[in-house]
Design a protein around this nucleic acid. Structure first.
Length: 572
RNA sequence: GCGCCCGUAGCUCAGCGGAUAGAGCAGGGGACUUCUAAUCCCAAGGCCGCAGGUUCGAAUCCUGCCGGGCGCACCA
């Protein structure tokens, strides 16, 4: 039970009695006390009485004796609430014996499909994929930990016209040579070479066109070559995921091709439902509300005038599969914000077709673009893409060098391990600590920063705690009483007790910067505590109590960072 | 033209109806014989893009304007 809710529950009846109806007590953290309630201000006009009088009356009626040390009317009519040390200590004590750290598993688990990462076969992963992968993985970890059934859907770009030219290029190179190139992760070179031939060589272009037809027609030789291409890319992506420390596995690849045979039936059903309209030779759905440049309704083109299918058809088929066959009630799409309109139209169409009916719902978990230093979008297809592995490798190298420098006691193997955890953590945290909807400028310095509000700061706090236990060879006694004397102990305790509410909120909003900010507050509170409150040199109950504070802090940091996909080394 | 998003400290960003607008970085000053100084403490830094409006109260909600970005029919 978090304190805010506890206080609100105690205040609500008092407010209801004074106001003669239900009132939200509006409890929040305060600079002037531990918490404050602002509800009396809003009630003043309605009741025609001074807010301070209302606040005083609520104070007198509320049953807060066991929770609060003091309850004071302040300013124009705030209620300042100071929590009793005893209550706060008991709450922390309860966390110490709770394997879930005050975050209960959800009562009604849902099936959640999370569409994220989605690189393209035979194309390099660039920084644009980083956001989707990192945010999506945090969502997967968080929702899974809460007890939901999470299905990770890596919607691989493994189908479409570019495969004609890619397969022809593979044929030109020879399978062995091509496999070699692709397994080295040099996907850009492969793609660029194919593209160049396609642009310059008419004969190659024609071969490519025929190859697409062969692929879609299921020609066995072509399909085998295509599979080769896909398999090589998949194994390359898995090495990147491994380096990035992401929970995506080989089993999560669900390429666009896997919906290939559902495309026609999907469109046919739209037709049967009377949602289809032919426009300029293309089969379209016109979801209400979307208007184009000319003021006319904007179509979702489910079948092109040449008979081919594009993204809308694939997305609809995938959605139908996820909601229908898989039984998902929450469908997440971790895709850049520029595609917002596309998803609006897809979701609207799916709803009209009855494929997406409550309680099932789809959410576009959009994120901002990555910009270059000139403030313009970076992640276009037209080059300028920064190779993801290059970024990751540099982060790990920097962090490893720093680990060696700062802690010579680390052996070579441990320094490498710390370097990985810290370097990768820094990159993920840089991405998750800001509002995901905002664009951000790609600054290597920022992403690779190892001090300030960064993952290493949180990891360092964790490793210091581990160091205390390691050095003393002791463990916290879970049942030990938590006695809070020092202000920095109280401050730390307040943060610990807030973990559950933060995770719960983030599971809904998927705004991971709230979790990041919380963990930073927690680590900062711990660091301040660490400076002022000796643990091992304390004695008796104070020592016992501080050991519990340390233990719970470590566990919350570890779990919180785990949800963000960030490791916590025992030593740094 | 229409729609969506964004303008907060020198920089990167939180805050999105409540009391004196918060962090980090950079820059200034302190703290290691004491559980890891990848740390902590102190000081400094702001017409919250501009102008109206709603409200007891606005960085936060509404309207307009200015500046920037993205999207707007067969590309994924």
């Amino acid at each position: 039970m978090d304190l805010e809710k506890l206080l609100a529950d105690r205040l609500a009846p008092a407010f209801a009695a004074v106001a003669g109806g239900p009132v939200d007590p509006v409890v929040r953290r305060s600079q002037h006390a531990d918490f404050q309630s602002d509800a009396a201000l809003g009630l003043a006009r309605r009741l025609g009485r001074p807010p301070r009088t209302i606040a005083a009356e609520v104070r007198d009626r509320a049953e807060l004796a066991d929770v609060c040390a003091t309850v004071e009317v302040s300013g124009p009519g705030f209620l300042n609430l100071t929590v009793a040390d005893r209550m706060l200590g008991d709450l922390v004590g309860a966390l110490a014996t709770d394997p879930r750290l005050g975050v209960p598993a959800v009562a009604g688990p849902e099936t959640v499909v999370i569409d994220y990462s989605a690189p393209n076969v035979a194309k390099e992963m660039h920084v644009g994929h980083l956001r989707s992968t990192v945010i999506g993985d945090a969502a997967a970890r968080t929702l899974a930990w809460l007890g939901h059934r999470v299905l990770r859907a890596n919607h691989l770009g493994d189908w479409g016209t570019p495969f004609g030219m890619l397969i022809e290029h593979l044929v030109d190179l020879g399978e062995a040579e091509a496999a070699q190139e692709l397994s080295m992760g040099d996907l850009d070179a492969f793609y660029t070479a194919a593209r160049a031939k396609f642009d310059d060589d008419a004969a190659f272009r024609e071969r490519s066109r025929l190859r697409v037809v062969a692929l879609q027609g299921g020609d066995p030789v072509t399909v085998r070559l295509w599979r080769l291409l896909v398999a090589q890319s998949e194994s390359y992506f898995l090495t990147v995921y491994d380096l990035l420390d992401v929970t995506l596995s080989a089993a999560d690849f669900r390429g666009e091709s896997s919906y290939h045979d559902q495309l026609a039936p999907t469109v046919e059903e739209l037709d049967r439902l009377g949602l289809l309209r032919r426009s300029d030779g293309a089969d379209c759905v016109f979801p209400p509300g979307s208007v184009g440049r000319d003021g006319e309704p904007l179509p979702l083109i489910v079948r092109k005038s040449d008979g081919g299918y594009g993204y809308p058809a694939t997305d609809l088929a995938a959605l139908r599969h996820r909601a229908g066959t898989l039984g998902a009630t929450r469908l997440l799409y971790v895709v850049g914000l520029p595609q917002r309109r596309h998803f609006e139209m897809v979701f609207a169409t799916a709803a009209r077709a009855g494929w997406l009916a409550p309680p099932a719902r789809a959410e576009h978990v959009g994120f901002g673009s990555i910009l270059g230093s000139d403030g313009r979008m970076l992640c276009s297809r037209a080059g300028g893409a920064v190779k993801l592995v290059g970024l990751l490798t540099e982060a790990v190298e920097r962090a490893t060098a720093l680990a060696r420098e700062r802690n010579p006691e680390l052996g070579e193997a441990e320094a490498a391990e710390v370097g990985r955890a810290v370097g990768i953590g820094a990159i993920k945290y840089a991405d998750l600590s800001g509002d995901r909807r905002k664009d951000y400028v790609l600054e290597w310095e920022r992403m690779l920063a190892l001090d300030g509000n960064t993952a290493p700061y949180l990891q360092y706090a964790y490793s210091r705690i581990r160091s205390i236990f390691r050095r003393a060879g002791v463990a916290a006694r879970p049942g030990a009483g938590v006695a809070l004397g020092e202000p920095s102990e109280r401050a730390l305790a307040f943060e610990l007790v807030a973990f559950g509410a933060v995770v719960e909120e983030v599971a809904g909003s998927l705004e991971f910067h709230h979790l990041a900010a919380y963990l930073h507050r927690l680590a900062a509170a711990f660091s301040a505590f660490y400076e002022r409150c000796p643990v091992l040199r304390a004695e008796g109950p104070v020592r016992e109590s501080r050991l519990v504070l340390c233990e719970v802090t470590a566990r919350v940091l570890r779990q919180g960072l785990y949800l963000l996909g960030i490791r916590t080394p025992d030593r740094m």
